[in-house]
Amino acid sequence: MNINKYPEIKSGGKLIKKIYVAVMLWIVGRAIQAASRVDREVKEEFGRLSDDFMMHLHVLPSGPGMIVGKDKNGKVKYMGWNPKGKKITLDMKVKNIEGAMLMFTFQESTCVASANNRLAVSGNVPDTMAFIRILNIVETYLLPKIITSFAVKRYPKWSQMSPMRKYAGRVLVYVRTFTF
């Protein structure tokens, strides 16, 4: 039985998926920053978080990531993808690129994803819960109703989010996200 009949196999790359996730992370990151200025509830949520709050959501092992946190004077900013030089208080790791694809093609909502053990979160729990609520609100803004109703357990009814607030908010968030 000669050994070299059974060669070593290097793992390939999934470039397209990584690009797609990177773009989505960039959009969501900027959208969070936009929403923190536009939406009252998001502002409150961030208000409750500690001042040096710095969240880093990235895909293992070396996939794309996004960092959102409060800068020196407490404003919520999207801080790109490189964690060097930043003190991360909440580190949310998605176990593999396929898990990230499931989340960002909205086949699995954030809650279902963490229920299915796709995320490995280290950092204190209250911040995580706050971030999940923020993410739900941002998704309501970013995406049409049909898609978000999959991604969220309960789509905010008329009472919680008046249509005026939703559509105006959506416009403002899009504007802020795509203007530098």
């Binding site: 196999i9 793992s11 390939g12 998926k17």
Partner: peptide
């Protein structure tokens, strides 16, 4: 399985 290993950066020793 090898496709699932994509982007993991790991190596499969061999397939026997």
């Amino acid at each position: 399985l090898i496709d699932a290993y994509g982007d993991s950066g790991l190596v499969i020793g061999a397939v026997f």
